[in-house]
Amino acid sequence: MSINWPVFADQLINGLTVGSFYALIALGYTMVYGVLLMINFAHSEIFMVGAYSGLFTMNRLAEMGLYETSPALAILLTFLGGAIGAALTGVTLERLAYRPLRKATRLAPLISAIGASFFLQELVRLLPTIGKAVMGIRLGGQSLFPVNWQQSIIKLMDDFGGSKVKIYPGIMTTAGFDIGDIHVRYSQVVILVSSLLIMAALYLLVRYTRLGKAMRAVAEDKEAAALMGIDINQIISRTFLIGSMLAGVAGVMMGMYYLQIRTTMGFVPGIKAFTAAVLGGIGNIPGAMLGGYVLGLAEAIGLQFLPAVYKDVVAFGILVLILIFKPTGILGEVVAQKKL
């Protein structure tokens, strides 16, 4: 098979970019698995909410004209908006859907997570409908909100969610620089570099701060950590907070990169990010980062041998192969071991 090098290189660069998304999302899976030993099935929806919140923030900032006056600040705030939206979702989810099930068998939280996943997807899709329905409610002839608020509330909800595909404004263009035949987009470089910076920050946080140490202690042995005076609930909640923020950032980046977002956008990247987390060794933070990039590159390489429609099959194939040959992943798992 002859390889078209410029195309292949292009795909590899794309693989690194996509790998950044996988890595950022994978961190959420791996951190939650580390402390709770559960797959946060709804993590893909947290990511999706992040993308929607980012776009919502962006539209508000554009209305205020901030994108013209100071674009850098505007972009930063957009990411912050996405991260906050995702974090609120993640923390609420943990509090309402998972914490009551902490002591149940492993099946219950998993099913609860599947339910939450449906709920979130549908909530975003139906937000405008719900908005109109709520505004239409009359109590004793009185509507719940003043009339002049109603239109703007409906408009905001319409702007946030809905069943139609939403479009991110084209901030990330195809502009870039060339190395020989290979075109590298600025946006790709920005995504890669900022993802790496965020992950480096996370690594330092987990390695050196009190919170990070507490998180690692909880991941290794909840009982012992509790005996040492660590507030388990608080640590778990913060783990969701951080993991969700990373997913939210990934959601905004992905929206900017691919331009289109929809309520079902979380599913495939979600499964792939989980694959990345398992690939690196579940519970292992650097492992999730590594796993994301390895998976992104593996998909790019797979495209050399398979038609594009089978791209997703590559990721699942990898997942199955790791589970057969190296179930603890590349860097090894870090989770509490079973006791007898």
Binding site: L101, S112, G115, F118, F119
Partner: peptide, 20 residues
């Protein structure tokens, strides 16, 4: 009918908590 899946998801969560 439009809220079917929304309610469904919510029911799954509530059910796991109340009547697993």
């Amino acid at each position: 009918s439009e809220y079917r899946l929304l309610i469904f998801g919510l029911l799954l969560v509530i059910m796991m908590i109340l009547r697993p």
